[in-house]
Design a binder for these strands. Structure first.
Lengths: 124, 124
DNA sequence: CTCATATATGAATACCTGTTCATATGTGGA
DNA sequence: TCCACATATGAACAGGTATTCATATATGAG
């Protein structure tokens, strides 16, 4: 996870010519804090991979263990495990252990919503 | 734009041991087509950058020209222009020309929704 | 026409990512 | 205890990405 953070140079409104000052200040007022934006960028980064999207979509309707997921997305166990780690780190999925199996599910409803709206956009 | 496409090896349910066959087939049935997933991954990829998220957030409430955007996100005109191209290519923003200015806005409401839900997830 | 301004873009470089391979951890069964 | 299985992870290589610099295009003013 290494989204480049936003470098707020002190030269802010200087090295470029501002045309619409009001709009610029309005936009600056509406900006979320840097930390949230960076974290959100990392979240989108983890979603920005077809295999991980397949995993998320598979988990949208049910709980699955790692080797079932590997079968669904047709990748190696290792690759899926690496993907799951990233998804875990961004709290996109969580899991419970049962014996030696790990059952994964989506972390919350935001995730399914993101993918649904994203697909709406894509298919419009 | 170059998300790796999903390689559907013919060995699908073979090289890994399937534990819960029903769940696996249910998940396979729910998968969107490869093309949509790849396109969606590319869309998230473009959103997976703090500076581009700043741009999107700035455009959520108003129309802005390129040099105003450069001031808001505190980057060079060139960097912003490159970012805008990617955002355009994924239909995240669109623009109108007025003289030598280009005024950018979000392409549709899905985009603002994605960022809003994403921030909800991040801040939960 | 000529110049200044607003924006776009190609190339190059430094950095980040995905997969594989090898191996580690941890659990249950014999 | 010893082995098989389910999962996790570090290292490494191939390929992709962000920014900068230089420059191109295109519009309006004079």
């Amino acid at each position: 996870m290494a989204s480049q953070t936003i470098s707020r140079r002190s030269s802010a409104l200087c090295d470029v010519h501002v045309v619409h000052e009001d709009a610029v200040h309005g936009a600056l007022r509406d900006q979320p804090d840097t930390e949230s934006l960076t974290y959100l960028a990392d979240t989108f980064q983890v979603l920005a991979n077809p295999t991980r999207l397949q995993i998320v979509q598979a988990l949208a309707g049910r709980e699955l263990c790692v080797c079932d997921l590997a079968a669904v997305v047709d990748s190696s166990q290792s690759a899926v495990s690496h993907h799951l780690r990233q998804l875990r780190q961004m709290r996109i999925v969580r899991y419970r252990k049962e014996g030696r199996m790990a059952y994964y599910r989506l972390d919350d409803e935001h995730i399914a919503a993101l993918v649904r709206i994203g697909l709406d956009h894509v298919c419009e």
